[in-house]
Design a protein around this nucleic acid. Structure first.
Lengths: 200, 200
DNA sequence: TCCCCCATGTAAGCTGTTACATGATTAA
DNA sequence: TTAATCATGTAACAGCTTACATGGGGGA
C-alpha cells in the first residue's frame, strides 16, 4: 500500500501526468520505493477510482492525449492520515543474510563471488543515495525545488532536514553492508587461505 | 525463489516432516527468511513435484498420517548450484525511509510515534538476532547441533564462522536502524522543541 | 523518412498474506 | 473429557515482475 502514498507525496507538490510522474518518481521517491511504470499507471487509475486523485485529459498535438492528475481533498486527507498511522513492517526476508548463514555450502570461489557482488550491489545504492544527499544540499532536485517553492518559509528547514535524515540513514545502511561483506572476504581468506587472484 | 533453498538448507541436515520443518524453520532460518506454514506446506509439495525432495507417508497412531521429506540428489545439486549462483537483489522498497523522507507532512506527535515504533521494531529484531548469536556460541540451537553432528570435523569451524558472520551483520543492521531513529528523535526535538512527555 | 521520446497501458505468472478449515493424538 | 499440540492444508486477495503491445509527436 505504500506505492500510492509515494505517488501522493509527489502529486501533492503539483499536478503531473502519469508519464511525468513516472519520470520524477525514478529520481526522487523511487530511491526509497521502486516502482516500474507498469505498476504506476494502473495504480493511478485505482487511486482515481478511490477518489484520491483526479485526472484531466489534455490534448497533445492533434490527436495525442495525456491525463494530468491532481490530488483531491480526500487524497490529501488520506496522505496525512497515513503519515500519522503506524507503519506495517514486513517480515524479514533477506536473501543475502540467508545465503551468508549457510555459506559453508558454497565453494571458496562461490563465497567470494557472493561477497563481491554484495559489495558491488551496495556500492551502487550508496552512490545513488550519496548523490541524492548532495542534490538535497545543493537544492538541485527538480521535485525538491518545486516542493520548497510551495512550502511556507517556516517549514522549509523541516522539509530539508527530514529529507537529509532519511538519506543519511540509507547511506549508513549501505556502508555497513559493504563493511560487513568486506569482513566476509577476510573471513574466507582466514578459513580457506588467501585468494589466488585477489579481487580488484 | 529463496524459500525452497531455505527449506533445503534445513532438510539437508536430515529428514523432517512438514510440521517439524515448520517448527525448526521458525527458530533457525526463519530469522532471516520468514515463511508461514500456509506457504511451507504447498512449497514442499511443489518441491516434491520438481524432484528436489521426496516424502514418505508415515502412520501416526491409528489413522494419523505425516509426510517425512528428505532431499534427493537433484535437490542437493540444486541447492549447491544456488549457492554458486548470483543472488537476485530485490529493488529497494523501504516504507520506513519513505516515510522519513516526507516526515514534514506528519505532526510532531506522529513523527515521534513513527520513530519510537521504528526503534521498538528493530529492538525486537535485535533481541532475536543477539539471542541467536548467543545460541550459536553456546551450540544451543537444535538444528545447528544436528548440522554439526553430520559435518566433518574439518568443516565445523567454517559452518560456525559463517553462521556467526551472518547474524553479526543482522545485529549491526538493527543497531544502526535504532541509532538512526534516535537521531531522528533528537532532530524532532531540535525542530519542534522538546516533547512534553518524553518517551520512556 | 526515420528515430527517439512521449504516453499509456495489458496479461500472465509468481510470491506472499490473511483467514479459514479439518481432523487426529496425547497428556492432564 | 477437554485442551493442547500434532498435522496438513485451501481460498481469496494483494502486490510485484516481466514481457508484450500500441501509437502519436517532433526534430534531423
Amino acid at each position: 500500500m505504500s506505492l500510492r502514498y509515494a505517488l501522493l507525496a509527489l502529486l501533492r507538490v503539483g499536478p503531473l501526468s502519469g508519464y511525468d510522474l513516472q519520470k520524477q518518481f525514478a529520481q526522487s521517491v523511487g530511491h526509497v520505493w521502486h516502482a516500474p511504470d507498469s505498476q504506476i499507471y494502473p495504480e493511478l487509475r485505482k487511486m482515481e477510482l478511490d477518489g484520491l486523485i483526479e485526472g484531466e485529459e489534455q490534448t497533445r498535438g492533434v490527436r495525442g492525449v495525456r491525463r494530468v492528475y491532481h490530488v483531491t481533498d480526500a487524497g490529501e486527507q488520506a496522505y496525512l492520515a497515513w503519515m500519522e498511522a503506524p507503519l506495517d513492517y514486513q517480515r524479514v526476508r533477506d536473501p543475502a543474510h540467508l545465503r551468508a548463514a549457510y555459506l559453508e555450502g558454497a565453494s571458496r570461489e562461490g563465497a567470494l563471488r557472493f561477497l563481491n557482488a554484495h559489495i558491488a550491489q551496495w556500492e551502487g545504492e550508496l552512490e545513488q543515495w550519496e548523490g541524492e544527499l548532495a542534490r538535497i544540499d545543493a537544492r538541485d532536485n527538480p521535485m525538491l525545488v518545486r516542493r520548497l517553492a510551495v512550502t511556507p518559509e517556516a517549514d522549509r528547514e523541516r522539509t530539508i532536514a527530514f529529507k537529509r535524515f532519511a538519506y543519511e540513514g540509507l547511506v549508513e545502511r549501505a556502508r555497513i553492508e559493504i563493511e560487513w561483506a568486506r569482513r566476509g572476504l577476510s573471513l574466507v581468506d582466514r578459513l580457506d587461505g588467501p585468494a589466488p587472484t585477489p579481487p580488484e
